[in-house]
Simulated scan of single mutants.
Amino acid sequence: MKKSVTTEEIAEPDWAAIRVKYEIAEIPMRDVAAGTGMQWQKIAKYAAKHGWKLRKPRTRAQKDDALRDAGLAPTRLATRLKRLIAREISSIEGEDMKKRPAADRERDARRLSSLVRSLEKLNDIKAAKNKREREEEAGEPDDEAIHAELERRFNRLAAAGDEGKPSGRPEPGGETMAE
């Protein structure tokens, strides 16, 4: 006799967790739907029905906040990767390598290599972010400021004479221009 499934036996998806992932535009919809057992179209329909925010590109600060809220902040990821690498190494060290097939040993080495590369890439991203923040604090000129300064200098050169020769006056903070 076939047993019918009641509505209590069907687990309701964790819509709060799905919503957090859905509202991060950088996570593809197929990845959002992957762990739920549902099609991405059903999630999109539910989102529209319940007024979830549209998936749109965000500013860098908004992306950082959204990733941090989802537990995917770079510092958290780095910590998680370090723990995972340590666990993998412990697991490998705890096994008798002579008893394991070569294919399994190769798979372990590739997995460990991939984790280390991911950690290195995450560290590179963090270093680039820190460098960018230092440059912003130091007041490095942006492209528009450089463009405006070059335009000002060209205009001064054009106004210097009919022949287009440099005026010979020193630039502020610079040296005189030789003819």
Rank of each mutant, 00 (worst) to 15 (best):
A25G: 06
S114N: 14
A16M: 01
W15Q: 05
K82F: 00
R76F: 04
L67R: 12
T6I: 04
D14M: 09
A78E: 07
R80M: 13
P74F: 07
K129R: 15
L81C: 02
M38L: 15
R68T: 10
L115E: 03
S91W: 04
M29H: 06
P57T: 11
D14E: 11
E93A: 10
A16D: 15
I92S: 09
R87M: 08
V32Q: 03
R87D: 15
A34H: 11
Q62S: 09
T75H: 05
P57F: 05
Q41D: 08
R107Y: 06
L54T: 06
R83Y: 06
T59W: 08
P28N: 11
K3S: 13
A17V: 01
I92H: 08
K49S: 11
L122F: 02
M97S: 12
D65H: 05
W52D: 13
V116S: 03
V20C: 09
R100T: 03
D124S: 14
M38P: 01
L122Y: 03
R105M: 14
K99H: 08
L72C: 06
A66M: 09
V32S: 05
R55D: 05
P101V: 09
A48N: 13
T36Y: 08
A128Q: 13
A34V: 02
R111I: 00
Y22T: 08
A86N: 10
A25P: 02
Y46I: 02
S113F: 08
R55Y: 03
W52P: 09
D124Y: 04
D14L: 03
R76Q: 14
R30A: 12
K63S: 12
H50F: 10
R30W: 08
D96M: 02
E8N: 12
R60Y: 05
H50E: 15
R60N: 08
G71P: 10
S118E: 11
L122A: 14
Y22P: 07
M97Y: 03
I18W: 08
A70N: 12
I89W: 01
R68L: 09
V116W: 02
V32Y: 05
E12Y: 01
I92M: 10
S91P: 00
K63I: 09
R30K: 12
D108N: 14
A109T: 08
K53P: 05
L54Y: 00
K63H: 06
A11S: 14
E95V: 13
E9R: 06
K99D: 09
R105D: 04
E8W: 04
A61W: 00
W40H: 11
A16L: 05
A34C: 04
R68S: 10
L115G: 01
R68Q: 11
W15R: 07
T59A: 07
I92L: 09
I27H: 10
